[in-house]
C-alpha cells in the first residue's frame, strides 16, 4: 500500500515549510521511493556541500499531481518517459544546459533522444526497465515464451500481474499485433475478448509488490516490473525472467529540472554526479534495473550482468509508452468492466 510511504514525505514537507530554505546551498529532490540509495545522496552532499532535501513518491501520477498543484518547489524530479513527455508539452520542465553535464557522454546513445524527448533537451535517463514474465521454474516445467503461454487454463489462479489497466490492454494488443500507442475504439473492441479471458485466470493484481505473491508461493508465474524480477532472481535462481516474444513495454525513468526550480545549478551538479561510473554502479547494486550508463556497466560484476531481468539477452522488441490522452479513460472503463464481470 502506498499510504505509509506518504507519511514520511508529509512530515518532511511539514518540517520544510517551517524551516526556511537557505538559498544556494540546498537541493530539493523529488524522486521515486526505493530508487536512489542514501549513500549516493550523502556522497553528493559530502563533495559539494549542497544539502539534499529528499522527498519521495510512489507513482508518476502522484508526481504530476504535486507538480501541477504547485505544492513545494522542487529542483530535480524523476518522472518516467510518458510523464516527462506530458510535462515537456505542458512547459513544466526547464531545458538542460549540456555544458554543465559533461558526463552525458557515459550514456548509451539508444537511451537518449527517444520519443518522449527527441532532442534530449529536457531529460537525462536514470534507469530503465521492462515489463516481462517471471516463471518459478520449480513449479513450471513447460517453456513460457510469451503472453499466450502465461494466460492458459493450466495456470488458472496461479498468475500475478500488475494492477494497471494500461499494461493489461497493452499485452493484449501485442498478442493481436496491434500498435500499443494509438488506442482506437476498434483496437479496444478486438482486445476486449482477450482481456476478458485473461482476467478470469489471474489470481492477484498487484503493482506495488508483485514479487510477494511469487515468494509466498501463492502463484507460479507473473507479469511484473523487471526490477522486481531482478530482486527475485537475486533471492533465488529458480525465478527466471523472460521478455515476452510478442513484444514488451520498456520504461525509461529520467531526471529533469522543473521550470520553477530555484537551484538549477545544484540540479545540474547532481545529474552530472550521478552519471559518474563509480556513483552509477552504486545505484545498480542497490536497484538492479537496466543501467543506461555504459561506463558504469563496465564496473558491474559478471553475476550482475548475467541477471536476465537487468540485462535481457538477445534483441527483444521493446517499446516505450506514449501519452494516450482521452483513450486512457476508455482503457480504464474496459478493464474495470471485465474485472467486475467475474
Amino acid at each position: 500500500m502506498k499510504t505509509p510511504r506518504l507519511i514520511l514525505p508529509a512530515l518532511l514537507a511539514l518540517v520544510m515549510s517551517v524551516v526556511p530554505a537557505r538559498a544556494g546551498g540546498e537541493l530539493n529532490l523529488f524522486g521515486w521511493s526505493e530508487y536512489i540509495p542514501q549513500t549516493v545522496i550523502d556522497g553528493f552532499t559530502k563533495e559539494t556541500g549542497v544539502k539534499v532535501n529528499f522527498e519521495t513518491y510512489a507513482s508518476n501520477e502522484e508526481l504530476l499531481s504535486k507538480l501541477v498543484a504547485g505544492g513545494g518547489s522542487y529542483d530535480l524530479v524523476q518522472p518516467s518517459d510518458y510523464a516527462a513527455e506530458v510535462m515537456i508539452r505542458q512547459k513544466l520542465l526547464s531545458a538542460l544546459d549540456p555544458k554543465l553535464i559533461p558526463n552525458l557522454q557515459n550514456l548509451a546513445p539508444d537511451f537518449r533522444h527517444r520519443a518522449h524527448d527527441p532532442e534530449g533537451a529536457y531529460t537525462v535517463p536514470y534507469m530503465s526497465g521492462t515489463v516481462g514474465i517471471v516463471v518459478n521454474t520449480d513449479k513450471v516445467k513447460t517453456p513460457v515464451k510469451g503472453y499466450h503461454d502465461v494466460f492458459t487454463p493450466a495456470f488458472k489462479d496461479r498468475i500475478v500481474v500488475l494492477n494497471d489497466t494500461r499494461e493489461l490492454v497493452t499485452w493484449a494488443l501485442y498478442t493481436l499485433n496491434l500498435p500499443i500507442n494509438s488506442i482506437t475504439p476498434e483496437a479496444l473492441a478486438k482486445a476486449r475478448p482477450v482481456v476478458a479471458e485473461w482476467v478470469k485466470l489471474v489470481k492477484v493484481f498487484d503493482s506495488d509488490s508483485p514479487k510477494t505473491a511469487l515468494l509466498n508461493g501463492d502463484v507460479d508465474v507473473g507479469i511484473v516490473w523487471s526490477g522486481e524480477a531482478a530482486l527475485l532472481w537475486k533471492e533465488n535462481k529458480k525465478f527466471v525472467y523472460v521478455i515476452p516474444a510478442e513484444g514488451a513495454h520498456q520504461f525509461i525513468d529520467v531526471l529533469a529540472i522543473p521550470a520553477n526550480a530555484k537551484n538549477k545549478e545544484a540540479a545540474h551538479q547532481f545529474i552530472n554526479y550521478i552519471l559518474r561510473p563509480e556513483v552509477s554502479v552504486l545505484i545498480s547494486e542497490a536497484f538492479p534495473y537496466t543501467n543506461p550508463n555504459l561506463a558504469a556497466r563496465k564496473l558491474l560484476s559478471a553475476e550482475q550482468l548475467a541477471n536476465p531481468a537487468s540485462y535481457p539477452p538477445g534483441t527483444p522488441k521493446l517499446e516505450t509508452f506514449r501519452d494516450i490522452g482521452k483513450a486512457a479513460a476508455d482503457v480504464d472503463r474496459l478493464v474495470t468492466d471485465l474485472k467486475s464481470a467475474r
Binding site: 502506498k2 507513482s59 501520477e61 502522484e62 500475478v160 494492477n163 494497471d164 489497466t165 482476467v199 489471474v202 489470481k203 492477484v204 493484481f205 498487484d206 505473491a213 486512457a328 479513460a329 480504464d332 474495470t336 474485472k339 467486475s340 467475474r342
Partner: peptide, 18 residues
C-alpha cells in the same frame, strides 16, 4: 488481490492512478 473491484477501489483509482 484486487481481482474484483468494489466502489471504493473505483473511486480511489480515479483520484490516484487515473
Amino acid at each position: 488481490g484486487a481481482r474484483v473491484p468494489l466502489i471504493g477501489n473505483v473511486i480511489q483509482n480515479q483520484f490516484l492512478q487515473a
